[in-house]
């Protein structure tokens, strides 16, 4: 791990601590175990989606379909449990598989036809949302007790079991990125795809695989989100792609591909979730929430850019 990257993470941790201190002063009960549980329980879904998005962006692509894919996987999960009476253990793999297949389709079209992933995923965003409404007949499915235990805080720790699972996924994704051939090829493809191809390395397989992985992680996020809400909501995940991209960018990953880290994106998610919880706890109005969130995204990215420039000047 190089110094620049650790420096970037350090800035984010400082930004996060600053937010915690600020909300702690402004709100009466922000520094409490309940708030910790609240913020922690909101992390899993966004952090696994952001992990997938990080890998896609590092590989030089983008995935705008994650929110719709999450909704589709959630609908399949809900229908499997509520209407088909499947046990949770059988429904979860099917939900993840649904996401993986959606991502695989996106990847095959993107790479096979040589169309920018921005456009293909813009299309699959619509297709998957349409499929979601078709699968659950546009109706919210209440799942209830079958899935809620996943999101109930565990004794002593006070956080739901989805949190350690999500953290494990983030660590695994970081390991894939920095310690596997697939990960290193992905970084190289994002930096300079033609050069990698001319070096005789197969670029098509990793480029397709990364979209399938992103889809599978959106499917996993659907399990987390459905557990937290106790329901499968056909309108879930609207705008999730923007939150994930924001987290990835705050986390220091370059939008033009070729560099970045999954751990950084997790810190980005932490900043966004804390901001959201803090503003809600202060009772901020909807316009104010949007303005502050937008400002915070720009501020976090600017802080990282300034740090880079400063480190560059120092040599």
């Amino acid at each position: 791990m190089n110094r620049t990257r650790l420096g970037g993470w350090g800035v984010l941790v400082l930004v996060w601590l600053g937010l915690v201190a600020l909300f702690g002063m402004l709100a009466d009960h922000f520094l409490s175990a309940t708030t910790l549980t609240t913020v922690a329980s909101r992390l899993p879904a966004l952090s696994v989606v952001a992990a997938g998005m990080t890998l896609v962006i590092i590989g030089g692509g983008i995935d705008l379909s994650v929110g719709s894919v999450m909704a589709l996987s959630g609908a399949v999960l809900g229908v499997a449990i509520v209407q088909w009476g499947w046990p949770l253990a059988a429904a979860i793999p099917v939900a993840i598989l649904t996401g993986a297949l959606a991502g695989l389709g996106t990847g095959l079209v993107t790479v096979g036809l040589g169309i920018p992933s921005f456009l293909v995923t813009l299309g699959s965003l619509e297709i998957c949302r349409g499929l979601t409404y078709a699968v659950c007949d546009s109706r919210t499915l209440f799942i209830g007790a079958a899935i809620r235990p996943l999101a109930q805080p565990m004794p002593i720790l006070g956080i739901p079991p989805t949190v350690p699972v999500a953290l494990a996924v983030v660590v695994a994704a970081q390991a894939i990125l920095s310690r596997t051939v697939f990960g290193r090829h992905l970084v190289a493809i994002g930096a300079n795809e033609p050069a990698v191809r001319l070096a005789g390395i197969d670029t098509a397989t990793p480029r397709v695989a990364v979209f399938a992985l992103s889809g599978a992680l959106a499917g996993l996020a659907a399990v987390f989100a459905s557990a937290r809400l106790g329901s499968a909501d056909p309108n879930a995940g609207a705008g999730l792609e923007l939150a994930a991209i924001a987290a990835v960018v705050i986390g220091g990953t370059s939008l033009s591909g070729g560099s970045g880290s999954v751990v950084g994106s997790l810190l980005g998610v932490l900043v966004i979730a804390t901001l959201e919880a803090g503003l809600a706890q202060l009772g901020a109005s909807e316009p104010l929430k949007r303005i502050v969130t937008g400002g915070a995204i720009i501020a976090a990215v600017a802080a990282d850019a300034l740090r880079r420039r400063w480190e560059g000047e120092r040599g």
């Binding site: 709100a27 009466d28 009960h29 922000f30 409490s32 309940t34 708030t35 609240t38 329980s41 909101r42 919210t140 989100a225 937290r228 809400l229 329901s231 909501d233 309108n235 879930a236 609207a238 959201e276 919880a277 809600a280 706890q281 009772g283 901020a284 109005s285 909807e286």
Partner: peptide
């Protein structure tokens, strides 16, 4: 003691309700 817009959405309302529960014991 608290009043916020959940924009008609389940996910948003979940976050807001959790924050309200934390802030107002």
């Amino acid at each position: 003691v608290a009043r916020q817009s959940g924009q008609w959405e389940m996910e948003k309302a979940n976050g807001i309700a959790a924050a309200m529960l934390s802030e107002h014991p």
